[in-house]
Design a protein around this nucleic acid. Structure first.
Length: 423
RNA sequence: GGAGGCGUCGCAUAGCGGUCUAGUGCACCGCCUUGGAAAGGCGGCAUGGGGCAACCCAUCGAGAGUUCGAAUCUCUCCGCCUCCGCCA
């Protein structure tokens, strides 16, 4: 949620953001009108309360009764205005950063860096689903019988490879020395405080997920109505509220956490897309980073997280490119979104004329600013005594998708796969 | 699942129908004192909203109710603790 005062003072910026983020349906004028109305309604409630307090001081029972009724009416009016205002306010997306490309959809994304040499094969490289079948390490058929489409069994060496991958990521995220090296390499000057490993809940109250601005679209979530619990779509969802309703001290920041959890996604609206292999599943494991920083450190923190992601892929010798996600394609609460796409030589991209091989998204990083913190009520007390929302970042460390990249980039002619040296 | 207890301004606590504009201790900040410190003294120290300001309003886990009046009484919900049962 944006700050109401910010919306009032920067109507043009908000209107532009609505347009660029494809949310022109949000009635900004109505919001501004409601904000005025709420101010008036609150004034009236305060006035009646004052009179009521005076009546109580003089034990004026008659006036007290009358004012109680007046207060009830005024409060009901205030509640109605407040409710409509908040319901509209939470529909305004976050404002894209200045360096975010403007664009309607995926087509507006900009590649900002490329790294690595694409492997050359003396044979036609296979897609990971074929390699998985040859090696007997991916079994979607049985998973479909047991759980349905978009589930998988990862077995044997591939399961071990995933553990190795996650261990590798943990070794980086918990090492101050390695993090300092990454920070220096990226030309940043921020704290090298390591990430605190966390095993978080993977179900959460729908109300809290809503405060994270991640409940919508509910259709994308697995929701247990009876218990009002939602399966998380990312560890971010339960790491983000770790300091809900708290005021942090400046010297505590940055606070960095990481968690490996299953992530659950219904993939509503993706019917028929990426149905082969393990690229798009209802359940997959992911190691996620989350951090809380002072507002002025938020953007650099995202650069840091991207640098970690790139370090991980570079250590794995996997070619990738970094992509600045444009306004129309970025997440609702995002101020700036940068994705890494890793080279997958065995797959056919959407453009068949380009031949075999394509880049697929393996990493995302979201700079959220104070957008989530405002609704989560996670604040930082500044040196001057004032309070303001902390800035938050979340980003993928490693997920199951890099497994695909390893299978396809490290494949041999006989269908075997070489394990990356760092693992 | 059963029984009982408890949620108060960072922490610990007082308050049990109007004197609460919520007291006290600790922690923290400033000043006095000191060569410097400790101790001591004085002052400050929650959040949100409104107002140029003095100041006003709201908030004692959340919501509803009783009452002229609720931190205090009643109900519902949420959370925590103790005991019992079941259990990876």
């Amino acid at each position: 949620m944006l700050d109401l005062q910010f919306i009032r003072d920067n109507t043009d910026i908000v209107r532009l953001a609505l347009k660029n983020k494809n949310r022109e349906g949000v009635d900004l004028d109505r919001i501004l009108a409601l904000a005025e109305e709420r101010k008036k309604a609150a004034g009236l409630v305060g006035e009646i309360n004052k009179k009521r307090n005076d009546a109580q001081a003089t034990r004026d029972a008659e006036a007290g009764k009358r004012l109680k009724d007046e207060l009830k009416t005024a409060e009901e009016n205030y509640q109605a205005v407040e409710k409509e205002l908040v319901s509209l306010l939470i529909k305004i997306p976050n404002i894209p950063s200045a360096d975010t490309p403007v664009g309607p959809d995926e087509s507006g994304n900009k590649v900002i860096r490329e790294w690595g040499e694409k492997p050359q094969f003396s044979f036609t490289p296979k897609a990971h689903w074929d390699i998985g079948k040859i090696l007997g390490v991916i079994d979607n058929e049985k998973a479909a019988e047991v759980s349905g489409a978009r589930f998988t069994y990862l077995k044997g060496g591939l399961a071990m490879l995933e553990f190795a991958l996650m261990n590798f990521a943990w070794s980086v995220l918990t090492s101050e020395e390695t993090l300092q090296k990454i920070i220096t390499g990226a030309g940043l000057s921020i704290s090298a405080k390591p990430f605190v490993p966390v095993i978080p809940p993977i179900m959460m109250r729908s109300g809290v997920m809503n405060r994270m601005a991640r409940l919508d679209p509910l259709d994308e979530r697995y929701y247990f109505e009876k218990d009002d619990l939602v399966f998380i779509g990312s560890a971010e969802h339960t790491l983000g509220p770790l300091h809900m309703d708290e005021t942090l001290r400046e010297e505590q920041l940055p606070l960095r956490y990481a968690a490996m959890t299953p992530a659950f996604r219904r993939e509503a609206g993706a019917a028929g897309k990426d149905t082969r292999g393990i690229l798009r599943l209802h359940q997959f494991n992911k190691l996620e980073m989350e951090s809380f920083t002072k507002p002025e450190d938020g953007l650099a923190e995202q650069d840091f997280m991207v640098a970690i992601q790139e370090y991980l892929l570079q250590q794995l010798r996997l070619p990738y490119r970094a992509v600045a996600i444009c306004t129309g394609d970025m997440g609702f609460p995002d101020q700036r979104q940068i994705d890494l796409e890793t080279w997958m030589p065995g797959q056919q991209g959407s453009n068949a004329s380009e031949g075999l091989g394509c880049y697929r998204e393996t990493h995302t990083s979201d700079y959220i600013g104070g957008f989530q913190a405002r609704r989560l009520n996670t604040k930082v007390k500044r040196a001057d005594g004032s309070n303001e929302p902390v800035h938050m970042n979340d980003a993928t460390a490693l997920s199951q998708r890099p497994l695909i990249a390893i299978l396809e980039n490290y494949q041999n002619a006989d269908g075997t796969v070489t394990v990356p040296e760092v693992l």
